[in-house]
């Protein structure tokens, strides 16, 4: 059992570790949503990260608020932070160069999938048309009629 002063010390350490958050203004949240929280724990944005005293988000929010107080635009604030941290500061890959593939690729795949379905249906319809136009041997037809009757009896 830890003594009271040790317990208090632990609480104090924890309290110091978890720096205090301030309320997030809508303006800070708006810019923060364009920036990824890079704490390594969550996949939230600086605008939406709710971990108290997050070591990445808390100072970034203060930085955003300070730049807003200077009258900087949203984009210029984002640009400053990207310059400091690199492209990984953005919550989504930038829509230029190879990184544009991030957003484009899923929709290319859907388009490709739709085309594959179209091709599959077309091919199947051609097959069906060919099958119907081919004369069916009476023996084969009899065999299927017998099978159908058997199945109908089972259903009854």
């Amino acid at each position: 059992m830890l003594s009271k002063w040790k317990s208090s010390l632990l609480l104090l350490v924890a309290a110091l570790c978890l720096a205090q958050d301030s309320l997030v203004s809508p303006a800070v949240r708006r810019v923060g949503e364009k920036l990824s929280c890079l704490c390594g724990v969550c996949k939230n944005t600086v605008g939406t990260c709710d971990m108290m005293g997050c070591h990445y988000t808390a100072p970034k929010r203060d930085q955003i608020a300070a730049m807003q107080a200077k009258g900087m635009s949203d984009q210029s604030i984002v640009d400053v932070i990207v310059k400091e941290v690199g492209l990984q500061a953005l919550s989504e890959p930038p829509q230029q160069g190879f990184n544009a593939m991030a957003l484009v690729m899923p929709f290319i795949m859907i388009t490709f999938g739709l085309y594959a379905i179209y091709w599959f249906i077309q091919r199947n319809q051609r097959q069906a048309a060919m099958a119907i136009s081919n004369p069916v041997h009476p023996e084969v037809l009899d065999r299927f009629r017998a099978a159908a009757e058997k199945e109908m009896e089972k259903l009854d």
Binding site: C37, K43, L90
Partner: peptide, 12 residues
């Protein structure tokens, strides 16, 4: 490919 780190977070 690009040699630079990027993030893909919840918004994506």
């Amino acid at each position: 490919v690009t040699g630079e780190k990027i993030s893909v977070s919840a918004p994506f």
